[in-house]
């Protein structure tokens, strides 16, 4: 049996890991409650006067309240994510390095690997592969879009209030409140599709390379055979 030497590299800061799992919990909560708000597939307590329904079971009012609280948490964690990127180099891996040759080489290699024309142990090693560098900014944009449309609609119950003046414009930009509801709904599904693919590619990476991809979001470390091409991005 050949023993391979592996280099242990510290990639994910504690702040980023906490943010990732907070984000996971809020997005799951927001999606589940949001689905009910968009399509109320079960009725609340029906045997009582509406006034007393709160104590009797799951109501639309409670589900919306959970949705709004999770929305506030999502916003706070998003701001936190931007702040840690200001202070730490390894938290700034999200933008595609379009101006660098290694990005394009990496994009070609990862595409060939994903369409199975290239083995995963061939080619260069990356701290953050080009596909992730391309897709993550879009996910951040999608989350930002959900925050703006969400708080826009939330705030319009008081059109002169803080949230309406901050994000109310999006409602008219998207052509009215009804369209804003629909956009909010569609992009929610896009984020869930991303989540499915995200989990799949992480499991795939772990299963094929056994490089600690799966545990890296808990302990921060990943294993590399050689020196990753974009090591300078975090050190």
């Amino acid at each position: 049996m050949r023993i391979e030497t592996a280099k242990k590299i510290y990639i994910f800061s504690p702040g980023l890991r906490i943010w990732h799992w907070v984000n996971f919990l809020t997005i799951i909560t927001l999606f589940a409650t949001g689905l009910y708000i968009g399509r109320a597939f079960f009725l609340g307590p029906t045997g009582v006067e509406a006034t007393y329904a709160y104590g009797e079971g799951l109501t639309m009012g409670l589900i919306r309240k959970v949705h709004f609280i999770a929305g506030y948490v999502l916003l706070a964690s998003f701001i936190f994510r931007l702040l840690i990127a200001l202070f730490s180099k390894r938290d700034r891996l999200v933008l595609p390095t379009l101006w660098r040759r290694d990005y394009w080489v990496g994009l070609k290699e990862i595409t060939l690997k994903y369409i199975l024309l290239m083995r995963d142990d061939e080619g260069h090693e990356y701290i953050r592969n080009a596909c992730a560098r391309t897709v993550y900014p879009l996910v951040y944009l999608a989350i930002l879009f959900m925050i703006i449309t969400g708080f826009g609609m939330y705030g319009m119950s008081n059109p002169s209030g803080f949230w309406a003046s901050l994000f109310g414009w999006i409602v008219w930009f998207l052509g009215g409140e009804f369209s804003t509801h629909m956009w909010h709904h569609w992009v929610a599904w896009l984020i869930i599709i991303f989540a499915v693919l995200h989990v799949y590619f992480v499991v795939r990476e772990e299963a094929i390379k056994k490089n600690g991809e799966l545990s890296s979001m808990f302990n921060g470390y990943k294993f590399f055979k050689g020196k990753p091409v974009d090591l300078e991005d975090i050190e």
Binding site: F42, G44, T46, A50, M60, G61, R64
Partner: peptide, 11 residues
């Protein structure tokens, strides 16, 4: 609105 908050809907 109270019926909305209570989850009491016409189907």
């Amino acid at each position: 609105r109270a019926f909305f908050n209570a989850g009491q809907f016409v189907e």
